[in-house]
Nucleic acid binder design. Structure first.
Lengths: 226, 226
DNA sequence: ATGTGTGAACTATTTCACAGCC
DNA sequence: GGCTGTGAAATAGTTCACACAT
């Protein structure tokens, strides 16, 4: 379930503050969900709570970590060392949760050889080597949109079965390979949508100046890509 | 609906390639969804297709842009100019889709005054000024976890009603304020979960070496934060 | 008393399948 | 003939409410 990492985050926060026990109500509040949902989710993993008391924080942290596969280490490679790749390479949340970055790769000769967050950027030609040598199982694609599918095909051919895609394209992969996509501009667009609803009040799509102009000439949105 | 931005992305891709018309089947494939779902989603906006033919790409681009509120410009401020803030500041997808970055702000004196992607980083003290002066309606929070709630409270007090949060905390906001959260480590954890399932085969939670150890001493996950 | 675990009711979303229009 | 738009069916997800353990 996609909410377990959120619970885990909330639990480690409580753990740091020295809390030993939580009720579903408290944990749900910390995670931003409703308590019935939290109990249902947790009961899916087994009976790890105590009636009348709550959940023991440390035990639950371990059980969720185990369910998520965080008791073993996962080896990741970051492909594309632009601004975003650099940010990812320096992101503390990777190392701290059982994700080990085994390589930073880029196609740009000006970037290859640079030292980023204590790692030397490798040339993309070495992709297959590095995947095999380090046993990479998760590839993080932070390349420009145009390069993403090609890189994806290569990492999949080299045996990677999980891809985290930051490039603004829908990657196609064979069955058995998982892709998750993070798209910054989509997140903003969703916010803009809600923002518009607030501004316009509860009336729906009437009050725009030029609401239903027919198909034709004008170019409404630029198509420059990230 | 949260899928409209994905359709819009697929449509602008087709538009660039000079395609004038698509069927729901083709567009659905490009967007990575099933065609019945796509038709249902689009029929929600109105009857913009032609039976027996399909959808006119340009017209549909405009209608979706309008629905999403992208025919107007949205002003955003980026708070926190670390690695991630820098990546966001340089992200082409913002400017190209009607999002204008009105300010980069940081609390660190070593960063304030630096020029990033053509903008000068401002001190966080000027937050309220900048929001008011530029009419910022969306705040992007890319600060460390500890600073995020404080920054969020300030932007909300200054009138911002949409927040895109990259800090790994659940922000609490008053009703009427929208928050979306992007969490890199959560995405990786979800991939790790599926990866584990593949490796372990269809058997469920039996085959771990130390499956059900009782609560007690060991610290299973470090708590260093991003 | 308190708070989990869970069947049952409810709500939302997805898919099917086909009538109707081009 | 081909493809949209859409009711109806199927499925998934959420919330309620309470029996039962501590």
């Amino acid at each position: 379930m996609a909410r377990l990492p959120v619970y885990l985050r909330a639990l480690t926060g409580l753990q740091e503050r020295g809390v030993a026990t939580v009720s579903s109500e408290e944990l749900a509040a910390a995670a931003g969900v409703n308590s019935a949902k939290l109990r249902k989710d947790l009961s899916h993993l087994g009976s790890y709570g105590t009636r009348g008391v709550g959940y023991e924080v440390e035990y639950l942290v371990y059980q969720i970590s185990r369910e998520l596969g965080l008791t073993q280490d996962w080896v990741v490679a970051i492909i594309g060392v632009g601004n975003l790749g650099r940010a990812l390479a320096g992101y503390g949340g990777f190392a701290s949760r059982g994700f080990r970055v085994a390589g930073l790769l880029d196609a740009d000769a000006a970037i290859v050889g640079q030292e980023i967050s204590g790692m030397t950027v490798q040339h993309i030609d070495r992709l297959e080597d590095i995947i095999a040598a380090h046993g990479v199982s998760i590839a993080v694609i932070a390349t420009p949109a145009g390069a993403a599918q090609g890189v994806c095909d290569r990492v999949v051919a080299a045996g990677v079965t999980s891809v985290l895609n930051f490039a603004p394209v829908v990657l196609s992969v064979p069955d058995g390979v998982d892709v998750r996509k993070v798209d910054l501009s989509i997140e903003l667009q969703i916010l803009a949508f809600h923002e518009q609803r607030k501004a316009g009040g509860p009336d729906e799509l009437a009050p725009m100046p030029d609401g239903d102009s027919p198909p034709g000439a004008p170019q409404y949105v630029e198509t420059v890509e990230a």
